[in-house]
Simulated scan of single mutants.
Amino acid sequence: MAAPTPQRRFKNPAVFICDIQEKFRTTIFELEKVILTSRKLLRAATALQIPIFVTTQNRARLGDTVAELQPALSAAGPLVQADLDKTYFSMYLPAIASHPQFASPSTTGPAEVAIVGIESHICVTQTALDLLAAGHKVYVLADGVSSANREEVGIALDRLRAAGAVVTTSESWIYECMGDAGIPEFRGMVGVMKDTMRDTKAALQGLLGSKI
């Protein structure tokens, strides 16, 4: 009897990059670690052909998405489904909510959305709550979110966990997304994981510290 064809565990994944902007460099706790995780997630999304949604908050005042993420976004090319500026705190804007990946969950199944960015207790929280209310699955990557005051982060993650979001790590989400070492992309993803091993450790230690 032939072995079943390897299939990914997640059928409708998406990546949200929330407001990781230049003007936040001096105000957000361990922003450089959020950037490391976000860059790894973008590389993984590109290798796995996962749609990417990016926002900025009041770009004219707070700046563009940080320079370190620009090469990865450029490499993702058409996988970047939206790069939107907003005043609304939630990323789940009408232009994103109406995207086919989210607009017809009865057809495509709920999206499995990984969120990284800032601030954990404001834009990340409101984005996650809106996605959950729309029937999607939400994964908040604890090694990829932060706030100006570090004490806000744990409270936000506890609230989101209670609301139904999964609080996990970037590596866990990426491997769960794949689900099977037999998929064609797995070998390339092992390379991404090896390349970013130090970044992963730095982000976990910097953002989670004694909690891991």
Rank of each mutant, 00 (worst) to 15 (best):
P4S: 12
T5R: 12
P6Y: 08
Q7D: 00
Q7E: 14
Q7L: 14
N12D: 08
A14N: 08
I17N: 10
C18M: 09
D19M: 10
I20Q: 10
T26P: 00
E30F: 00
I35D: 05
T37V: 02
K40C: 06
L41H: 01
L42H: 10
R43W: 07
T46N: 12
A47F: 00
I50R: 09
I52P: 09
F53L: 12
V54R: 13
T55S: 15
N58Y: 14
T65R: 08
T65Y: 10
V66D: 05
E68L: 07
Q70W: 00
Q70F: 00
P71W: 06
P71Q: 06
S74N: 12
S74R: 15
A75V: 03
L79K: 05
Q81L: 04
Q81N: 02
Q81M: 12
D83Q: 13
D85I: 10
K86F: 06
K86P: 04
T87Y: 01
F89G: 00
F89A: 13
M91I: 03
L93S: 05
P94G: 06
P94E: 07
A95Y: 00
I96Q: 04
P100T: 08
P105R: 08
S106K: 13
T107N: 02
T107L: 13
G109M: 11
G109C: 06
P110K: 03
P110R: 06
P110Y: 05
V113H: 03
V116C: 14
I118Q: 06
E119K: 09
S120T: 15
H121D: 10
I122M: 11
V124L: 03
T125H: 05
Q126F: 12
G135N: 06
H136M: 04
H136I: 04
V138N: 01
L141F: 07
L141A: 04
V145L: 07
S147M: 04
A148V: 12
N149M: 11
V153D: 11
V153S: 07
I155G: 01
I155F: 09
L157D: 06
D158T: 14
R161V: 00
A162R: 15
A162D: 15
A163N: 03
G164F: 03
A165W: 03
A165C: 11
V166A: 07
V166D: 04
V166C: 04
W173G: 02
I174V: 15
Y175T: 08
E176R: 14
M178T: 10
M178C: 14
M178I: 13
A181T: 15
G182W: 11
G182Y: 12
P184H: 05
F186Q: 05
F186G: 07
F186V: 10
R187V: 13
R187N: 12
R187I: 12
V190P: 00
G191W: 00
V192F: 05
D195M: 08
M197L: 14
R198M: 11
T200M: 07
A203R: 10
L204Y: 04
G206E: 09
K211A: 15
I212W: 05
